[in-house]
Amino acid sequence: MLGGINNGLYLISLSGFLVVAVLALILRWAFSHNNSLIEKDKVIGSEDQYGLLKVAHSPKNHIEGEMMRQKLIAVGIKATLSQTKDGPRILVFEKDLKIAKATINS
Protein backbone atom coordinates (compact mmCIF):
# COMPACT_ATOMS: atom_id res chain seq x y z
CA MET A 1 0.00 0.00 0.00
CA LEU A 2 1.21 3.40 -0.91
CA GLY A 3 0.07 6.01 1.61
CA GLY A 4 -3.13 4.14 2.48
CA ILE A 5 -4.22 3.73 -1.17
CA ASN A 6 -4.96 0.31 -2.58
CA ASN A 7 -2.26 -0.10 -5.26
CA GLY A 8 -4.29 -2.62 -7.31
CA LEU A 9 -7.24 -0.26 -7.79
CA TYR A 10 -4.87 2.63 -8.51
CA LEU A 11 -3.07 0.68 -11.26
CA ILE A 12 -6.34 -0.60 -12.77
CA SER A 13 -7.72 2.94 -13.02
CA LEU A 14 -4.47 4.17 -14.57
CA SER A 15 -4.51 1.35 -17.12
CA GLY A 16 -8.06 2.39 -18.15
CA PHE A 17 -6.85 5.92 -18.89
CA LEU A 18 -3.89 4.46 -20.77
CA VAL A 19 -6.16 2.28 -22.94
CA VAL A 20 -8.42 5.26 -23.74
CA ALA A 21 -5.38 7.38 -24.64
CA VAL A 22 -4.02 4.68 -26.98
CA LEU A 23 -7.42 4.27 -28.66
CA ALA A 24 -7.65 8.05 -29.09
CA LEU A 25 -4.25 8.09 -30.79
CA ILE A 26 -5.20 5.22 -33.08
CA LEU A 27 -8.46 6.92 -34.07
CA ARG A 28 -6.71 10.22 -34.64
CA TRP A 29 -4.18 8.49 -36.90
CA ALA A 30 -6.85 6.50 -38.76
CA PHE A 31 -9.01 9.51 -39.60
CA SER A 32 -6.26 12.11 -40.15
CA HIS A 33 -5.65 11.29 -43.83
CA ASN A 34 -7.26 13.35 -46.57
CA ASN A 35 -8.22 16.32 -44.41
CA SER A 36 -8.99 18.47 -47.43
CA LEU A 37 -12.58 19.67 -47.79
CA ILE A 38 -11.96 20.54 -51.45
CA GLU A 39 -12.63 17.79 -53.96
CA LYS A 40 -9.57 16.69 -55.91
CA ASP A 41 -9.49 17.22 -59.66
CA LYS A 42 -10.65 14.26 -61.69
CA VAL A 43 -7.92 12.50 -63.61
CA ILE A 44 -8.72 11.91 -67.25
CA GLY A 45 -7.05 8.81 -68.64
CA SER A 46 -6.67 7.21 -72.01
CA GLU A 47 -9.00 4.48 -73.27
CA ASP A 48 -6.81 1.64 -72.01
CA GLN A 49 -6.61 2.91 -68.41
CA TYR A 50 -10.10 1.80 -67.34
CA GLY A 51 -9.27 -1.73 -66.24
CA LEU A 52 -11.85 -4.33 -67.28
CA LEU A 53 -13.94 -1.82 -69.22
CA LYS A 54 -13.61 -1.74 -73.01
CA VAL A 55 -14.74 0.94 -75.45
CA ALA A 56 -18.05 0.05 -77.07
CA HIS A 57 -18.59 3.34 -78.90
CA SER A 58 -17.10 6.80 -79.35
CA PRO A 59 -19.99 9.32 -79.36
CA LYS A 60 -19.56 12.84 -80.71
CA ASN A 61 -20.63 14.50 -77.45
CA HIS A 62 -21.96 13.66 -74.00
CA ILE A 63 -25.61 14.09 -74.99
CA GLU A 64 -25.36 11.47 -77.71
CA GLY A 65 -23.29 9.29 -75.38
CA GLU A 66 -25.87 9.46 -72.60
CA MET A 67 -28.65 8.52 -75.03
CA MET A 68 -26.67 5.46 -76.14
CA ARG A 69 -25.83 4.56 -72.55
CA GLN A 70 -29.52 4.65 -71.62
CA LYS A 71 -30.25 2.43 -74.63
CA LEU A 72 -27.71 -0.12 -73.37
CA ILE A 73 -29.10 0.03 -69.84
CA ALA A 74 -32.61 -0.61 -71.19
CA VAL A 75 -31.31 -3.81 -72.81
CA GLY A 76 -29.68 -4.85 -69.53
CA ILE A 77 -26.03 -4.02 -70.24
CA LYS A 78 -24.06 -2.14 -67.60
CA ALA A 79 -22.49 0.83 -69.37
CA THR A 80 -20.44 3.83 -68.32
CA LEU A 81 -20.02 7.14 -70.12
CA SER A 82 -16.61 8.58 -69.38
CA GLN A 83 -14.46 11.44 -70.62
CA THR A 84 -11.10 10.20 -71.90
CA LYS A 85 -8.18 12.05 -73.42
CA ASP A 86 -9.63 11.26 -76.85
CA GLY A 87 -13.15 12.45 -76.01
CA PRO A 88 -16.25 10.81 -74.52
CA ARG A 89 -16.41 7.02 -74.62
CA ILE A 90 -19.04 4.43 -73.70
CA LEU A 91 -17.36 1.68 -71.71
CA VAL A 92 -18.72 -1.82 -71.05
CA PHE A 93 -17.33 -5.06 -69.70
CA GLU A 94 -15.60 -7.26 -72.26
CA LYS A 95 -18.21 -10.02 -71.98
CA ASP A 96 -20.91 -7.53 -73.06
CA LEU A 97 -18.85 -5.83 -75.77
CA LYS A 98 -20.30 -7.64 -78.84
CA ILE A 99 -23.89 -7.25 -77.65
CA ALA A 100 -23.30 -3.59 -76.82
CA LYS A 101 -21.84 -2.82 -80.25
CA ALA A 102 -24.75 -4.62 -81.95
CA THR A 103 -27.28 -2.74 -79.82
CA ILE A 104 -25.70 0.64 -80.54
CA ASN A 105 -25.51 -0.03 -84.28
CA SER A 106 -29.16 -1.13 -84.48
Rank of each mutant, 00 (worst) to 15 (best):
G45E: 04
A102W: 02
T103Y: 04
S13F: 14
S36V: 01
L53P: 10
K78Y: 01
N34K: 09
A56C: 07
I5Y: 07
H33I: 13
K42H: 02
K54P: 01
N34Y: 07
P88S: 03
A30W: 10
G87R: 01
L27A: 12
H62T: 13
G4R: 00
Y10N: 09
M1R: 02
T80V: 10
S82V: 15
A102T: 13
R69Y: 04
N61D: 15
R89K: 03
F31N: 04
I77D: 10
D41A: 14
N35P: 14
M68E: 12
L14W: 11
L97N: 03
R28G: 10
N61L: 05
L9M: 08
N61S: 12
Y10M: 14
P59W: 00
L2S: 03
N6V: 05
L72Q: 02
A102F: 08
N7M: 06
L14Q: 04
D86A: 15
V19E: 00
I73P: 01
V92Q: 02
V92C: 05
K54H: 13
F31T: 12
S32P: 02
S32T: 11
F93K: 11
I73R: 12
A56M: 07
K101Q: 13
A21S: 15
N105L: 07
V92G: 00
L9C: 08
E47G: 06
S36E: 08
R28A: 09
I90G: 06
Y50T: 08
K54I: 08
K60C: 01
H33F: 09
F17S: 03
I63F: 10
K95T: 00
I73A: 14
R89P: 07
T84Y: 04
K78W: 02
V19R: 06
G4V: 07
N7V: 13
